[in-house]
Structure formats: C-alpha cells, structure tokens
C-alpha cells in the first residue's frame, strides 16, 4: 500500500489506496460514506443481498486504523445507510466498532442519511464536512466519486479521490457503495479549474487529470435529475 501525497493550503495529506485520507501532522484519519447496514436496508425492501457488508467495511477500517494509529478518526457522514441503520448492526459489528473506539477517538459527522455528533469539524486551515460547499480548504465525501479510463480498448473504472489545490473529495468507503461519474456536473462544478483524480488500485493510486476521465456512462442519472 503506497499512499500518495497531495497539498492543500500548505498541508501535506496522504491519500491511501484503500480510500482514506491521512493527515500526518495532526495524526488524523478521514474516511467518508461507510454506509453501514446498507445490505439490511436493501433486505428490508426484499432484495436479500449478502449481509456481510458492514463486517467487510469495518474490517477494512480496522486495518487502516491499526496501520496509521490515528489520534482521531473522522467519519465524514453517511456512516450508516439510514437513520435506523445503527439499530440493525449485528453484535459482532458492534464489538468491532467498540474495539475501534478504544484505538482512536472517533468523530461521527452528520450525513444526509444519518445524524452525527457534528455538522463539520474545523481543523485549521482545513474543514471536514459531509457535503462539499465549494469552500476553500474543505475535505468532503457525499458524492462517491468514481472515474473510468480507457486503455488499448479496455475500460477500467474505480472509485477515486478528486483533488485540486483547494479541496479534496473522498471516495465512498462502504462495501456496497456505488459511484458517481466524476464527469457529472455535481462533481465537475466543484473543480472549475480542473483537478486530478486518483483511482484506487490494489497497492497504489493511479492519477489522471479530471479531464482525461472516460465516461462512466450512467446516463439514466441525468434522466432522473428532473424528477
């Protein structure tokens, strides 16, 4: 696992290929959109997908916390897929969360899916929040950025970070979280002067200009935006 450095308002941040942001100077680890208990939320609607998503997500999270040993773990909202998600969490997963909180101080930011203990966290010069507002110095989640590239006629799509000199968008971390094309105006409009995308790989990140991303072509997204 090789993390890639980016600089935001003079601060050096490390982007981890697992989808986490590490701020060495403050020993702070930020992770977005865990969407815990998405599986059971789908099951309640009759789609009995494997019930292991929370376990998978928490295992990956625990591995990162053991690796970086952060003083602070910031979960940037939508940590649970819905407000009742926490109540559905299984015993083993509750224990995993408890174990995590013994390793580090967890701050749960509010998302649009779940309540949190804070709307945003100011850690000058940076601000951590769920929904990006277009302010300088913010680190946010919410949008689940995902990018595709084509090479030799093959097509590869991955969740990704999007970063310019003013802000960083984190990929969604949850095992069942999907992605939004970085070419979507919702993401692109945050980066009027262009940005770099960092696609998550097994051992490292792969970096491209935002403008070089191929369409993820999830066209129905646009079809439904008027609804």
């Amino acid at each position: 696992m090789t993390a890639a450095p980016v600089h935001l308002l003079g601060e050096r941040l490390m982007l981890d290929p697992a989808g986490a942001l590490w701020w060495p100077a403050r020993r702070l680890l930020a992770i977005a959109d865990l969407h815990l208990e998405k599986g059971s939320a789908l099951a309640a609607r009759g789609s009995l997908v494997p019930p292991y998503d929370s376990r998978a997500t928490l295992e990956r999270l625990t591995r990162l916390v053991r690796l970086y040993r952060p003083e602070r773990l910031l979960l940037l909202g939508d940590s649970f897929h819905d407000p009742k998600g926490a109540a559905r969490l299984g015993a083993a997963e509750r224990e995993a969360l408890a174990a995590l909180s013994r390793l580090t101080a967890i701050t749960w930011l509010a998302g649009n899916h779940d309540p949190g203990t804070a709307e945003e966290v100011h850690e000058p010069p940076l601000t951590f929040r769920h929904v990006p507002r277009g302010e300088t110095g913010e680190v946010a989640g919410h949008l689940h950025p995902k990018a595709a590239v084509t090479v030799r006629g093959a097509w590869v799509a991955r969740p990704c970070f999007v970063a310019d000199s003013r802000r960083v968008l984190l990929p969604a971390f949850g095992a069942y979280t999907g992605g939004l094309d970085v070419r979507d105006p919702a993401i692109r409009s945050l980066f009027p002067r262009g940005a770099r995308v960092f696609l998550l790989g097994k051992d490292r990140l792969f970096s491209f200009p935002l403008a070089a991303a191929a369409p993820l072509s999830e066209p129905a997204a646009k079809a439904m935006s008027g609804a």
């Binding site: 649009n112 929904v131 277009g134 919410h142 949008l143 689940h144 969604a172 979280t177 999907g178 992605g179 939004l180 094309d181 979507d184 105006p185 919702a186 692109r188 409009s189 945050l190 980066f191 009027p192 002067r193 262009g194 200009p209 935002l210 403008a211 070089a212 993820l216 999830e218 066209p219 129905a220 997204a221 079809a223 439904m224 935006s225 609804a227």
Partner: peptide, 26 residues
Amino acid sequence: ADPPAVTPPPLRAERPVHPVHRANVA
C-alpha cells in the same frame, strides 16, 4: 494533455436527490 474541462455550470445550492443514488439506480 487534454485542456482543462470547459467552464462548468454554477454549483447548485441544493440537491434534492442524491446524485449517487440516481447513478446507482441507473
């Protein structure tokens, strides 16, 4: 390398439907 993306539309203040959800449905 490709030139930077064309000037995007202004950022919408509110987003009634989460774009990721739309995208995933799609």
